[in-house]
Amino acid sequence: MDFLQPTTWAEALEAKAAHPDAVAVAGGTDVMVGINFGHLRPSLLMDLTRVEDLQEWSIEDGAVRLGAGVSYARVIAELGTQLPGLAMASRTIGSPQIRNRGTVGGNLATASPAGDAHPALLAADAQVEVASVRGSRRIPVPDFYTGVKRNAMDADELITAVLVVPPSGPQQYSKIGTRNAMVISVAAFGLALHPDRRAVGTGIGSAAPTPRRAPAAEQFLADELTGTGLWESRAELPAATAGRFGELVADAASPIDDVRGSARYRLHALSVMACRALTWAWADYRTDTGKEV
């Protein structure tokens, strides 16, 4: 095994182009587990923690540009206002030790359906910026996940950053685990209300081969809120609307039975979480009258 420690992004991309089978490591929360147990023996291990650009976030053209190497702990501490859904998701990830090392870029690269960041990124309409020596491109996050632990990147590409437009409305994130901390999700749900464009964003985790949105639920809710004038009136949300939204979210999933939970439970849990998340988000929206939309 070789070990490479590029200090610039150009150097990292050159190396990845020269060694497409190189495994990039940042927080090590997936890669090192594989190596420790002999399940992963890459010929080249490339440490990305010395590439400074990756460790920063900034505001660019009105969007948060989150470097792929920013830790969950920093997302929680520094980006709670700009990326509330992602910050809530980050708080549910592993332990403090894991949150100090793990990165959103790593979560995307692994592309596990159980990755905690995905539902929040989906709900917030994030884009993933990937790069190679050939140039860079932006992939809308729903298109990024292509299969179980597969993503849309080419062999010579690395993740540069995630771009997310700060919210115009409330966001929520809920995750089921069978322990009260440090647990892999059995099912997860992310929600973003986008009052500025009268839209709704959703994200489902651990309930399909890939993280995915629930488009019918989004459309239903956006239509309801628009059709009944609720965006403007901020009146109470009918319980039936939240219930129907929950059902539609569950309809979008296609879970399996596995060691962490049954498919039927996952569907049920999604509908409950979606209904509750919407209720909480709407309550926030109703009290957040200061913000013009």
């Binding site: 927080g27 090590g28 929360t29 090192m32 587990v33 291990l45 702990a73 030790q97 100090n100 090392r101």
Partner: peptide, 19 residues
Amino acid sequence: CTVLLDGLPVCACLVAAGQ
């Protein structure tokens, strides 16, 4: 295996030696 790496608690088992 918690240690402080540049002042932050991390799991030393998940830090590649070279890191």
